[in-house]
Design a protein around this nucleic acid. Structure first.
Length: 320
DNA sequence: AAACGCACCAACCGCCTAGAT
DNA sequence: AATCTAGGCGGTTGGTGCGTT
């Protein structure tokens, strides 16, 4: 499928030097070998798994095949309307954190959700005049006339799907500031929000001046805004989080996901927009109102989702 | 019937982080 | 502290099928 020698100059991981390894679509025989081996021996040690299982594949390829296709818990078939709705809501809150989104939709993989987003939902939003990245109206004028139907027609069919080698810097409103630089909070970092609310991240606690105080215990080195993976928490930290309010965070997220939360959000956003000239701020709806609140929401959301992610992973492990 | 273009999605790539040494 | 290894993530690619011309 791809030319192995085409990798450009950068450092190669051992896995990338796949000399004599098979690539491309998996055959039923390979699937059987892989599934059979994992059912006998369990997941893990992906690098050496192919050899032990008698496969001429790299470990990454095996892992991907198992995770996205062969796992018993993977749900096949069409995305249901309620799943689609959930994806939309979660994406509005989380941006392109596909694995986190997938963690809240049982049986769906991050790859599947990512593909579905790129091929269906982003187009759907565009056709509704909504920017799929920010979930804001594409045409600023429609922002002032909220009751109007989407005025922006979808781009012509000729518009190619995004394959740019230099994708837009805005991958997610949650992790980008209006200047386009990642908003990754470290200890004592300060962020100036659109409404001049200052947020300070101190010693694992995100606080806000001029906004609502918030908390996120035990995440000193975690990317609160620019969350990258779910590995930020040690087991102890996870336990801490679990014992001090996973349920609260989870239900909080659920309430954000649920329809009834959005009127409040919208109201707050209107206030923020009204007090800010930066109406193009990339902070998404969930984070737009006042940064102080947003920081708390983000933290809560991230925390909740991380735990949900871990919980579902544990559940999956138990099932398997 | 053939050629063409588009949409879909499985698979790959590069990069990052955590843990081990 | 530095280096290595493994696992995981998001972005991107390209094969394939299907509809249109």
């Amino acid at each position: 499928m791809r030319n192995p020698s085409s990798s450009s100059g950068g450092t190669k991981t051992p896995c990338c030097s796949k000399v004599g390894l098979k690539r491309g679509p998996w055959t039923p025989e390979e699937d059987e070998l892989l599934a059979g081996y994992i059912n006998r021996e369990g997941e893990g040690r992906w690098r050496t798994l192919p050899k032990r299982a008698g496969l001429l594949r790299c470990g990454k390829s095996c892992r991907l095949r198992w995770m996205n296709y062969l796992r018993p818990s993977v749900k096949r078939g069409q995305i249901a309307p309620d799943e689609e709705d959930l994806i939309l809501r979660l994406h509005r809150l989380l941006g392109n954190r596909w694995s986190l989104i997938a963690g809240r939709i049982p049986g769906r993989t991050d790859n599947e959700i990512k593909n579905y987003w790129n091929t269906h939902l982003s187009k759907k939003l565009i056709s509704q005049g909504i920017d799929p990245r920010t979930h804001k109206p594409l045409n600023p004028e429609t922002q002032n006339s909220s009751s109007n139907p989407p005025a922006k027609p979808p781009p012509s069919k000729a518009a190619p799907r995004p394959r740019s080698p230099n994708p837009s810097p805005i991958s997610s409103g949650l992790e980008e500031t209006s200047s386009g630089s990642p908003a990754i909070l470290k200890e004592n970092d300060q962020i100036q929000s659109a409404d001049n609310t200052e947020a300070v991240y101190q010693n694992g606690t995100a606080t806000a001046h001029g906004g609502e105080a918030s908390y996120l215990p035990g995440t000193q080195h975690y990317h609160v805004m620019g969350l990258r993976s779910s590995h930020g928490l040690s087991n102890e930290e996870e336990e801490d989080l679990n014992c001090c309010g996973d349920d609260v965070f989870s239900s909080f997220l659920n309430s954000l996901i649920n329809e009834e939360a959005f009127p409040i959000q919208h109201q707050l956003q209107q206030q923020a927009v009204g007090s800010s000239r930066d109406s193009d701020s990339l902070i998404p709806m969930a984070a737009a109102p006042a940064f102080g609140i947003a920081a708390g929401w983000d933290s809560a959301i991230m925390s909740s989702v991380i735990n949900q992610d871990n919980n579902s992973r544990r559940a999956n492990e138990q099932v398997e």
